[in-house]
């Protein structure tokens, strides 16, 4: 006998739980990869190439790598959530959605606050001016 809950009882809850797993996984990765030294894909705009490093030399942007990593881990979290809850009842899915919602919004607020704290106190390091540069 199957233990799977009737489809009608579950409605769109499995989809909502999967989306919450994705969001929580993405935000947790964004937070952890900022708080801890994490190897990422960096883009070097002057050299027009990517480099995989914790912090490469010269002018480089970690934004692409961090978003890609967060999307990948978020996708993995959604897949794991699907496996964990594929036979869950409607009541269990509702509980899971409540818990995941709290985690998602807590991670959002905490990570945003961390970025504001880190960036508001940052010392800017301008790149050397090319010859003939006129600021405007």
């Amino acid at each position: 006998m199957s233990v799977e809950a009737p489809i009608a009882e579950r409605g769109k809850l499995p989809l909502a739980v999967g989306s919450a797993c994705f969001a929580a996984g993405y935000l947790a990765t964004f937070f952890v990869s900022t708080a801890l030294p994490t190897p990422l894909l960096w883009y070097l705009p002057l050299e027009r190439r990517f480099a995989f490093a914790v912090r490469p030399m010269g002018l480089a942007a970690d934004f692409y790598g961090r978003v890609l990593l967060s999307l990948a881990v978020g996708g993995l979290a959604a897949f794991i959530g699907h496996l964990l809850f594929r036979r869950a009842t409607g009541a269990r899915l509702e509980r899971a959605l409540r818990v995941l919602s709290v985690w998602t919004f807590a991670l959002l607020v905490f990570t945003a606050a961390m970025y504001i704290y880190l960036l508001a106190g940052r010392t800017a390091l301008p790149v050397p001016l090319p010859s003939g540069y006129v600021p405007r």
């Binding site: 989809l15 994705f22 969001a23 934004f63 978003v67 967060s70 945003a112 960036l119 508001a120 940052r122």
Partner: peptide, 20 residues
């Protein structure tokens, strides 16, 4: 940079909103 990272933090929420 605060704006850019805030937009990245909102991305999974916008995708979840779209899907659900």
């Amino acid at each position: 940079d605060i704006k850019e990272n805030l937009a990245a933090l909102g991305l999974p929420l916008a995708l979840a909103l779209f899907v659900v």
